[in-house]
Write a protein that binds this DNA or RNA. Structure first.
Lengths: 362, 362
DNA sequence: ATTAGCACTCTACAATATCGAGTGCTAATT
DNA sequence: AATTAGCACTCGATATTGTAGAGTGCTAAT
């Protein structure tokens, strides 16, 4: 059972209007639009049908209609006009990112900021995921009598450190040797491979290194897993107040509480599942607290490997078309930056913006 | 011209009451307190005087009085009863911190969380300040053809990294040599000393190293300075909603906007100036946006050196006595943790909590 | 010097009225 | 058969009014 062309037209008009104004859309206001050549009464009839089919909702009997999650889903899948940023906006975005290229983390934070600024929403950026990055160096440095810092340096420019306890009689030079030996053993490997490698290799030779190295990597893995939730950078939390839906202090508070439980945010972003773009509307989100929110995410790459996710979160009433275009642009800009800053010899990368293969969710 | 004993008693009662309830205090309610043996009318007269002297304010003619900044200042300096945490609270606090000792940054974040939880305010923690920490190791690692990561490891367990460009023909082994040479040159020095040392030492010998090392350290310094503002960790931003003063969405928004400009927060905390404790009430804060807020800070130590600052921010109506006791307890706990985790051989550290030398601000 | 008494002020809150945008239904029109 | 005009009705938003309560300053009595 498909919906008539006219119904779709009306539905689109309602959603467009509602996204712009935030107030429930009535038949009269809708009929006033110049491209509407039908009377309010007709619209009312169609609206009643659309409501029955689950596309529209009514806050109360004498209010206009608001789109349901189902309507938004239809909208993003087939109805909306895809938009592109204008030159100034692209310029702004790129300029902003390009001033921060000297540190991976700065790029991440700049991304969060500019993203929230351009969308007027709260942005989330997942830092490069370690499972996909290669170890470049492991360095163990003694910083006090029996404490040492294990520092891991990855090919993405990410640095991780874990504090461990070492026997106080262990000397710097010995730790240095272990560092070098370990590095040689696991260089250009990913973290889990590295662990396997150490277990396997260390079995036979170098017995005195083996135990220590295994313990050490075990501690590192444990700690890095434990702090996975910390790897989400936020931007524009205050933007939530710009939306009339959140003028209610209590709602705003709940939203901010959500943002403080970073594990949840991590789950939200990690659910992206390597899709180039995902859109989750209202109850499509696995997390019940998000039933009135939508999450749109995109991936970014370092050296052509999908290595992280970023996106925005906000009320289901959001300008999906614009946000998607911002994410598109952002995604290519980030990829370009990481390309240039980490692999400048390879300049003929493919254009991966504004493509057609946006694998939208569900 | 000093204030009579009775006036002080009344003022203290008003402040205590206002801190508890948040509603302007009237003469009748005050007279009902059992320890008040004077009539409402008398209190009214005294109140009128106190208002004239600038200690009390009236929201409108027929409301009760509220304390002014001046009153709070008098309160924290001489009037309030100092309190201490009960055993459960101390237990809670220490337990919370002790589960996070395996990474310096975790301790910092745990501090922010537990601090905001125990005070019901927004907490700020400044990470260890590099100016006071010693370099333990400098490691340069090539992560792509012409990019390398400079990683600095400090005695406090802090790790900093900066991305630099290197000539693509430069080999790993050469960078390794420079790393070792540099480390040897600057180990156990602070960052600025290190810079001087490199400039001085490199003048004569090792010409090929000199230019590179100087450029490198220059880039590092520049970048670390640029990101100084990032070194503030926040906790409990949402707590602002618990205060009736911030039920107004607009005010809450402005507060959150303030929290997003970390430079400001950095200034707030850095203004602590190595005082063990500081209290800044309302307009005592240099920043005009804080005219209705108070900031209370404390310092923490690593290896007995004052190395960072933490504190809370909230409406001037806050429970100064309780917050100070939380900060006291927190300060000793943190010092203890860093002592144990970094210098476990030295167990007879001095008790530095609940002392009398709290150098309060102004 | 202190307090009782009193007229006055101002906010918060509840009750009431009004307006306007929107609806569903029915009957007339195309 | 589809569309539209007309109409009675609903409901939230807003303004108006009245009332209760907590507080004040002033004056006169203690």
């Amino acid at each position: 059972m498909s919906i008539s062309k006219r119904k779709l037209m009306i539905l689109k008009a309602i959603i467009d209007d509602y996204i712009m104004t935030g107030t429930p859309v009535g038949s009269r206001t809708l009929a006033k639009r110049e491209d509407m050549h039908i009377s309010p009464a007709t619209i009312r009839n169609e609206m009643a049908d659309l409501e029955e089919e689950g596309y529209l909702e009514q806050p109360h009997t004498s209010a206009g209609r608001t789109p349901s999650d189902k309507a938004y889903r239809l909208y993003v899948d087939t109805l909306m006009n895809v938009s592109t940023l204008n030159a100034e906006e692209i310029e702004f975005l790129q300029h902003y990112l390009n001033t921060k290229v000297n540190q991976v983390n700065n790029v991440i934070e700049a991304t969060a900021q500019v993203l929230s600024e351009m969308t007027n929403l709260t942005s989330l950026v997942l830092v490069p995921q370690l499972e996909k990055t290669e170890i470049k160096r492991i360095q163990i440095v003694k910083i006090s009598l029996n404490k040492a810092l294990v520092v891991l340096i990855f090919n993405t420019g990410t640095v991780k450190d874990v504090l461990i306890t070492v026997p106080s009689e262990m000397e710097d030079s010995h730790l240095e040797n272990i560092s070098n030996w370990l590095t040689e053993l696991v260089v250009n490997k990913r973290l889990e491979e590295a662990m396997k490698q150490v277990k396997y290799f260390a079995k036979g030779d170098l017995k005195e290194h083996k135990v220590f190295a295994e313990q050490l990597l075990g501690a590192v893995l444990k700690n890095l897993h434990a702090q996975a939730g910390k790897d989400v950078v936020l931007g524009g939390a205050k933007n939530i107040f710009n939306h009339p839906e959140y003028q209610n202090v209590d709602k705003a508070k709940r939203f901010l509480a959500l943002l403080e439980t970073k594990d949840t945010l991590y789950k939200i972003l990690a659910a992206n599942n390597d899709m180039e773009f995902t859109i989750r509307i209202g109850r499509e989100n696995a997390i019940p607290e998000l039933k009135n929110m939508s999450v749109i995410t995109a991936t970014y790459r370092i050296s052509n490997e999908k290595i992280g996710t970023f996106g925005v979160i906000g009320p289901t009433r959001m300008d999906y078309a614009r946000i998607l275009s911002v994410l598109h642009c952002m995604s290519s800009s980030m990829n370009e930056i990481f390309m240039h800053s980490l692999e400048p010899e390879d300049n003929n990368y493919e254009n991966n913006g504004y493509g057609s293969n946006n694998g939208k969710g569900k």
